[in-house]
Design a protein around this nucleic acid. Structure first.
Lengths: 239, 239
DNA sequence: CAGTGGTCTAGACCACTAC
DNA sequence: TAGTGGTCTAGACCACTGA
């Protein structure tokens, strides 16, 4: 078996890494002008299209601000706010090597509360699909998922077996996602949620509410309740 | 004054939008093969570099999977996780048009708890700068910020007036940020935090903990405690 | 083998900025 | 006006895939 040789980095990545390191090491500080494309062409012996690609990608990543007619500058870092991911509970549990189970507590058609009806843009008095699941991590209750689904976006919703595939995964398949709004807060669980999670009423919970959109319009409104002592949202920022 | 004419979209954006709409409207579903670069070249009458740019950017955005020798495919959407921002409290308050004030409750040098000392990679028994601030939104307590700062990263930290500039903004200036780890949970405030926020002990709080890194190493560890009924993290997902 | 995407070149024209 | 970035072309060579 021949030795695996690492392929050499593309030239545009070499330029990119050189600029990136100069920025993080303080050679250029916020607001400073970076070398122009022409200077980089001369320095690295590449074509302009290649160094342009390096700079264009750094711009897309938010590290560099480019001004036509003026130059490329180190972007202000305040914009590089922390972003953190809100992911499907099944993935989160599986990633830890734990067993995920889901109990389907409700799956039917109901009249949603007015706020939900408005978010889903339902006709006045219209109904929607409703599901409630309890997600278990190695048998321990981790999340109560209460979800309203716009009937037109997922007509077969009620026929699914959500013990096997999570509603999140199913909806992503049938209603291509184009956006979402997420809201995270700390609150007390509602009494029946607390009972399902095995909590006393007074325990703080992390509550995630999310409204997803497909191209056709709102798809689903969901409320995820997690016991505060068993669930932590983790995130990383990498410039 | 002449009428402002909208500049025409670049050609690569036209191709990109055409592909993007085909995907969200279901013309191609997850896993389907998209037209090859050569086909797009023929269809749009552009050079290969231009359609390549359109596809490369869609790939960078996670919408498309590209396989050398095989083709471009619609990427599985499960990867499109929600990301949300954790921002400087001053910006958040100012954005709502409210008045932000900060009371400096502590600003000195102390011995940090072992977990913090480890996170900041301090020598055994070493000390660090400590600050504690109470942030007010229109006079109402919104956040208790307890922060430990590595002395080598911001030697002038104790001389700052944090009633004027938040520690977050100051540290971003003096210690270029290259990454961070964030953790969000729901928990009860510690007794003295609850007192500062004007809460009864039993109220749930949204607690954000964050460790920031500069190129030289760890900069700061911070714990932000917010009353659950006065603070919500908002986020958006856009594909 | 033909077809695919990954990368790169050496030009080009344009709109914009700063002097 | 000289320099900058934004875009585009018409080629090219390569590594890889699938029939």
């Amino acid at each position: 078996m021949p030795t695996r040789v690492a392929p050499p980095d593309p030239a545009y990545l070499t330029v990119q890494r050189w600029l990136r390191e100069g920025i993080t090491q303080g050679r250029w500080r916020v607001g400073d002008r970076l070398p122009s494309e022409a200077e980089l062409v001369a320095q690295f012996g590449l074509s302009r299209m290649t160094v342009n690609r390096a700079l264009t990608e750094l711009h897309a990543q938010g590290l560099v601000r480019r001004v036509k007619g003026s130059g490329s500058f180190v972007a202000p870092l305040e914009r590089l706010a922390a972003t953190l991911q809100v992911r499907d509970v099944h993935e989160q549990i599986a990633e830890r090597g734990h067993v995920h189970q889901a109990q389907v507590l409700a799956l039917d058609r109901q009249t949603p509360p007015p706020a939900v009806a408005a978010a889903l843009q339902l006709r006045k008095g219209g109904t929607a699909f409703y599901s409630q699941l309890l997600h278990l991590d190695n048998g321990v209750p981790l999340q109560v998922e209460s979800r309203w689904v716009h009937p037109a976006r997922a007509p077969q919703y009620l026929k699914q077996d959500f013990g096997q595939v999570t509603p999140t995964a199913y909806l992503l398949q049938v209603a291509p996602l184009v956006g979402a709004e997420v809201q995270i807060e700390a609150a007390l669980a509602q009494p029946h949620e607390a009972r399902l999670l095995g909590l006393s009423d007074a325990q703080p919970c992390l509550v995630v509410q999310r409204l997803t959109h497909s191209h056709e319009g709102p798809v689903s409104w969901v409320r995820l309740v997690h016991p505060g002592d068993r669930y932590v949202l983790q995130g990383k920022v990498t410039t």
